[in-house]
């Protein structure tokens, strides 16, 4: 009986473990605010998009690829970078992605979905 219970438990763990353990994906790098500022200038991004894996309303930003000449940078907001990386992978998003609480504070992301042109951020 105990053996049966152990086997049953192992089957349950094998089935549900992949759901609870986030997939390892390093595409959303955690960086400092200084690094963020420098890569924004170096890479000439034109649009910054705040995103979280649990944000259903963020989906429209993932359904469209960047327009011609547009360089988007995704910023992980209120979420784990691994979780957002998996979402970007699922939607086949090739744009860069960064993570960092100081970046979120600097940009003033207090709600989602959040997307702004870089020109708008600079003016502000």
């Amino acid at each position: 009986m105990n053996l049966l219970l152990i086997r049953f438990s192992l089957v349950l763990i094998a089935v549900f473990a992949p759901i609870f353990v986030p997939k390892a994906n390093a595409s959303c790098k955690s960086i400092s605010l200084e690094d963020f500022k420098s890569i924004v200038v170096q890479n000439n991004y034109s649009r910054i998009v705040g995103i979280a894996s649990w944000c259903a309303s963020c989906k429209p930003h993932l359904m469209v690829q960047a327009k011609d000449g547009e360089r988007r940078l995704f910023v992980v907001a209120f979420d784990e970078p691994e979780a957002v990386s998996s979402v970007l992978e699922k939607f086949k998003i090739k744009d860069d992605c960064v993570s960092g609480d100081s970046i979120v504070n600097f940009l003033g992301i207090s709600y989602l979905p959040w997307a702004k042109d870089l020109a708008e951020i600079k003016t502000k």
Binding site: F20, S53, C58, A83, S86
Partner: peptide, 14 residues
């Protein structure tokens, strides 16, 4: 929250 909803798999509930 034992399991968070995600756009990665929208069918899995929170």
């Amino acid at each position: 929250t034992m399991l968070q909803q995600s756009l990665e798999n929208e069918s899995i509930p929170q």
